[in-house]
Simulated scan of single mutants.
Amino acid sequence: MKVGFIGTGSMGSVLLDAFITSGALLPEQIFASNRTADKVNLLAQRHPGLNVCSNNIETVSNSDIIFLCVKPLQYKVVIDEIKDKLNQDQILVSITSPVQIRHLEEALICKIAKVIPSITHLTFSGDSLCMYGTRITPKDRLLIEQLLGSISKPTEIDESYVRISSDFSSCGPAFISFFLEQWVNAAVEITGINREEITALAGEMLLGTGKLLTEGGFKPLDLQERVAVPGGITAKALSLLKQSLDGVFHQLIATTYGKYDEDLQKCDILFGDPKA
């Protein structure tokens, strides 16, 4: 199997690095192109044997599966460039949420899948959100999920829930790390504790909490009730958080959905959707 990457920016390089590091793919199986050639060359230096392509058509011509890892508003330009070089047996995997499967199936003759990855795949963890077009066969799905299964937990979702699911699986690491950063900053400023020491404690706590929620049978409320003894320190601090964060997460979701809807409308226009 030969796998192509069009776009090797933040998330494209995460996938590429994770697939190679996990042993799912050899560098020689990968063909990659990017608008900025230096980014691909750096990856090739890190993974000797990786095939650096001079353009996107070269990537497509050599690949069975193509991961399209560009920004939403760059999709139409890339699609117009490669559409005549794709065949019905190839699989194109989109990794951005606003570009819809219907956009791609109407523009291309190949098989279409949509996968939302996460930076957590660098540690072979986290969910990869999977959605499939009408031409994807059970065999194709198995192939995709076996590949993703080497670096993540492939989880099929309905495309209508891609935004809210992405908030947790893909954006979540940034949101949680922001919370931890603010907490660590306050701890250092108030107590003088070493930043690296308290950050390491926070990381281990987060790892253990994740295991309790995924392997230990706990729900979020279960953990709160188990740790927060009535009248104790944790309970008092939780009360403060509940007051301070009231409405914040509704605003967060409204913000991500607002940006998503804006990008979706732009994609509809780019792809000539009559509903736009």
Results as ranks from 00 to 15, higher is better:
44 A>N: 01
68 L>M: 12
265 Q>I: 08
17 D>H: 11
189 E>H: 13
4 G>P: 10
230 P>V: 07
59 T>E: 02
18 A>Q: 01
202 A>D: 01
214 T>N: 13
182 Q>Y: 07
221 L>Y: 14
150 S>W: 01
30 I>S: 03
232 G>A: 13
164 I>G: 08
142 L>P: 00
251 Q>G: 01
207 L>F: 13
59 T>K: 04
67 F>H: 03
60 V>M: 12
120 T>R: 05
81 E>G: 03
54 S>C: 09
55 N>A: 08
128 S>I: 04
74 Q>H: 14
39 K>V: 06
210 G>V: 04
72 P>C: 11
184 V>H: 10
262 E>P: 00
127 D>Y: 11
18 A>K: 00
112 I>T: 02
1 M>D: 08
230 P>M: 08
134 T>M: 03
172 G>F: 11
204 E>R: 05
44 A>L: 07
167 D>Q: 02
134 T>S: 15
242 K>A: 15
209 T>S: 14
163 R>E: 15
180 L>C: 07
89 D>V: 01
146 Q>T: 14
47 H>N: 09
208 G>L: 06
157 I>W: 12
209 T>G: 10
145 E>K: 10
132 Y>R: 10
106 E>Q: 14
247 G>W: 12
270 L>S: 12
18 A>W: 00
200 A>M: 12
39 K>H: 14
118 S>H: 03
210 G>E: 08
178 F>Q: 08
274 P>Y: 11
66 I>D: 13
236 K>P: 05
115 V>T: 09
28 E>Y: 02
215 E>K: 12
268 D>M: 06
98 P>E: 08
183 W>Q: 12
39 K>Q: 10
99 V>Q: 04
49 G>R: 03
242 K>S: 15
122 L>G: 10
146 Q>P: 01
86 L>A: 03
142 L>A: 13
92 L>P: 06
213 L>V: 03
66 I>S: 13
120 T>F: 11
130 C>T: 03
242 K>E: 15
51 N>M: 06
108 L>Y: 05
218 F>E: 06
212 L>M: 15
133 G>T: 05
213 L>Y: 04
13 S>L: 11
225 E>R: 12
79 I>E: 06
191 T>D: 08
201 L>T: 04
137 T>F: 07
67 F>T: 03
274 P>M: 08
98 P>S: 08
67 F>Y: 14
247 G>Y: 03
52 V>N: 09
156 E>F: 10
204 E>M: 14
153 K>R: 10
186 A>D: 09
59 T>S: 01
101 I>G: 04
100 Q>V: 02
16 L>S: 07
230 P>W: 02
212 L>H: 12
104 L>S: 05
228 A>W: 00
179 F>N: 01
150 S>N: 04
48 P>L: 07
237 A>T: 04
67 F>K: 00
35 R>V: 09
246 D>M: 04
177 S>C: 15
103 H>F: 09
95 I>M: 12
115 V>K: 00
224 Q>W: 13
7 G>N: 06
157 I>G: 05
275 K>S: 13
11 M>N: 06
264 L>P: 00
98 P>A: 05
6 I>A: 06
229 V>P: 00
14 V>R: 09
189 E>M: 06
268 D>L: 03
248 V>F: 14
258 G>A: 11
110 C>Y: 05
276 A>K: 13
90 Q>V: 02
180 L>K: 00
185 N>G: 00
68 L>P: 02
89 D>K: 13
129 L>S: 09
128 S>C: 12
75 Y>M: 09
148 L>P: 04
198 I>C: 09
186 A>C: 02
236 K>L: 08
